[in-house]
């Protein structure tokens, strides 16, 4: 496959990845790495560099609309970003010390677990049974638009969520992904935010988490312009589309589809990690 063909295929894939990533708040790094490594035989370090670019493009591309429309909660995001950026810093230094097989295997396990959690997830949003004092102190409660007008919500269990975000940061620094799945789960299941607020806020945060690791990957030569060139415009266009669709979309079907996709990818990544095929 020559560069022209590779660019075309990756631009179209990027469109789909940006679309899915922005809708689900997952960022799309989870798809880019398996796609490049398994689909195109790209070394996992180049794939991680491209994934970093994908995550930042998805986040920034969709966040403009999410912030404007009132889905992303800026205060919750800023507060939790302390945990994610510090975690990412730690994870990045671990990534450079670990062999590729371990990174690949770990990635597969994370994917598989995330997929399982995704299918298991039940309710869209919990009824808020009284806010927490911590959330009130940090001014985290908010309101988001729905078909029935503005719906107010409250944040719960802030310290637990902060701890999980630090773990999410370590994972993203380690694996070059925004680890949006951990973020969405923590916001949705632990903080009890409405699902669309969870995905939009996760989407808003993952760009900053990824940016925290970008310096190391750039200086180590992981970020290749040949791979970034189709990924940036493709993913941005997809993220713009996804952000426009979020207010109308039924997310449950998307969640199941996505769970299936990452479960397949997880199996292959674990196999390759164990077989040392990277």
């Amino acid at each position: 496959m020559n560069l022209f063909e590779l660019t075309s295929v990756l631009a179209v894939s990027g469109l789909a990845i940006g679309f899915l990533g922005s809708l689900t708040g997952l960022g799309g790094g989870f798809i880019v790495v398996p796609l490049l490594v398994l689909g195109f035989g790209v070394d996992i370090r180049y794939a991680i560099g491209a994934s970093l670019v994908t995550v930042i493009a998805t986040s920034s591309g969709a966040a403009a609309a999410y912030v404007r429309d009132g889905y992303a909660n800026i205060r919750i995001a800023m507060f939790l970003e302390i945990g994610t950026t510090a975690g990412a810093l730690l994870g990045t230094s671990l990534a450079l010390a670990l062999p590729k097989q371990v990174i690949g295997g770990l990635f597969g396990i994370v994917l598989l677990h995330a997929s399982w959690m995704n299918v298991r997830r039940k309710s869209e949003s919990k009824a808020s049974e009284g806010g927490s004092a911590v959330a009130a102190y940090f001014g985290m409660d908010g309101a988001y638009p729905s078909a029935a007008g503005l719906v107010s919500y409250q944040a719960h269990r802030v310290p637990v969520c902060f701890g999980l975000m630090t773990v999410a940061g370590v994972l993203s620094g380690l694996l070059g992904i925004g680890s949006g799945i951990v973020k969405v789960l923590a916001l949705d299941q632990v903080m009890g935010l409405p699902f669309k607020v969870s995905t939009a806020t996760s989407n808003f945060m993952i760009g900053v988490t990824a940016a925290a690791g970008a310096g190391v990957y750039l200086s180590r030569g992981y970020i290749d312009p040949g791979l970034a060139m189709p990924v940036v415009p493709g993913v941005l266009a997809g993220a713009f589309l996804g952000a426009r669709l979020l207010p109308r979309v039924e997310t449950r079907r998307l969640r199941v589809l996505f769970a299936a996709v990452i479960a397949c990818a997880a199996g292959e990544m674990i196999y390759n990690g164990v077989a040392g095929k990277f």
């Binding site: 940016a211 312009p225 970034a228």
Partner: peptide
């Protein structure tokens, strides 16, 4: 391209 990527990283 790389400068564009740097700008993208700088955005967040």
């Amino acid at each position: 391209i790389q400068l564009g990527v740097l700008l993208l990283i700088a955005t967040p």
